[in-house]
């Protein structure tokens, strides 16, 4: 019995060894079924491998973090510093983009009128506790700037240079209550005096009581002798309301400045005016409403049958 059992086990062993050698021979001879079996096994295993990856990834990350604790901490610190630097660069870039836009619009305006300008950044705003409205720019006498030169932005008049230093200048804004400028209505020779009110609006006093003015009229700087302090043709503002008080000697109006005094980043000082007055060339063009297409229907009456029988 024991010998029978041993013979049986040896027979089984031989059979299994021969089977294994047969499989090796088949594979080495390149039988396609073998490759198909392996790829079928991989196809069957891949969902389990994906699930295993999902389950074990947090564990692997945890172990990795533990074993590389010092390195991970340093990496995190490095990444934080880089992130902070990139954020600062992004903010700076945004500021620069805004300044570039303002500069472009100033250059468009100055180019149309052939002004010679010196551009400068606003580096300080005047104190809100003071009663004057001023800004400080980073250009001064070293850049060719002098007192009583006109300061403009891409939208129009900003103010006039009041004090000049070597590398900076102080500009009185058009919103200052002490600011006054001679203006004329675009498209006509009607003139008046515009005075600041401490806000983005100004008060216009026309010099001629026969002058007709209406809401929406555009005001341009009239210009001064030798273009100081004001060069002619610079857009100033738009009439928002007209006052027709009975018995008033002159006509008045409220004007809203074109320049945005709340966001002055880059301004330009007109260091040399053109020889010829640009007239209304710099006046902003009014938006033209898009015409609504209309359909005209022509109806031709047909003659009635009773009229035709008669």
């Amino acid at each position: 019995m024991r010998n029978g059992g041993e013979n049986r086990s040896r027979l089984l062993l031989v059979i299994l060894i021969v089977s294994a050698l047969f499989l090796i021979t088949l594979d080495l001879r390149g039988v396609n079924v073998i490759d198909g079996l392996r790829s079928g096994t991989q196809t069957a295993l891949s969902p389990f491998q994906r699930a295993g990856n999902v389950v074990l990834t947090p564990v692997k990350n945890f172990v990795n973090d533990i074993t590389h604790l010092g390195r991970t901490r340093n990496q995190i610190e490095d990444l934080r510093r880089q992130n902070q630097k990139l954020r600062e660069q992004l903010i700076s870039r945004k500021n620069q983009d805004g300044e570039i836009e303002q500069l472009k619009s100033i250059l468009d305006l100055a180019g149309t009128a052939s002004f010679k300008i010196v551009s400068a950044k606003v580096i300080a705003q005047g104190s809100s506790l003071a009663f004057t409205r001023t800004i400080t720019i980073d250009a001064g006498s070293g850049n060719g700037i002098k007192k009583n030169m006109t300061v403009i932005s891409g939208n129009g008049l900003v103010g006039v240079v009041k004090e000049v230093f070597a590398n900076s200048s102080i500009v009185m804004l058009a919103t200052d209550p002490a600011f006054k400028v001679g203006v004329r209505i675009a498209g006509s020779q009607q003139i008046g005096i515009l005075a600041g009110l401490g806000s983005s609006s100004a008060n216009l006093q026309l010099l001629d009581n026969q002058t007709t003015i209406k809401v929406g009229d555009i005001l341009l700087a009239r210009g001064s002798v030798n273009s100081q302090p004001f060069v002619p043709g610079v857009p100033v503002g738009r009439v928002t309301s007209v006052s027709n008080a009975a018995g008033a000697v002159t006509q008045g109006a409220t004007v809203r400045y074109f320049a945005n005094f709340g966001s002055l980043g880059v301004v330009s000082v007109v260091v040399k005016a053109p020889k010829a007055d640009p007239r209304d060339a710099l006046a902003p063009v009014k938006p033209v409403p898009t015409p609504i297409p209309t359909v005209t229907v022509f109806v031709t009456p047909t003659p009635s049958t009773s009229a035709s029988s008669n």
């Binding site: 047969f22 499989l23 090796i24 594979d27 073998i34 392996r38 991989q42």
Partner: peptide
């Protein structure tokens, strides 16, 4: 197993 590089029957033997 997909990670085995030898011929079929190698591990078996």
């Amino acid at each position: 197993s997909p990670s085995t590089s030898g011929p079929l029957g190698h591990w078996t033997l």
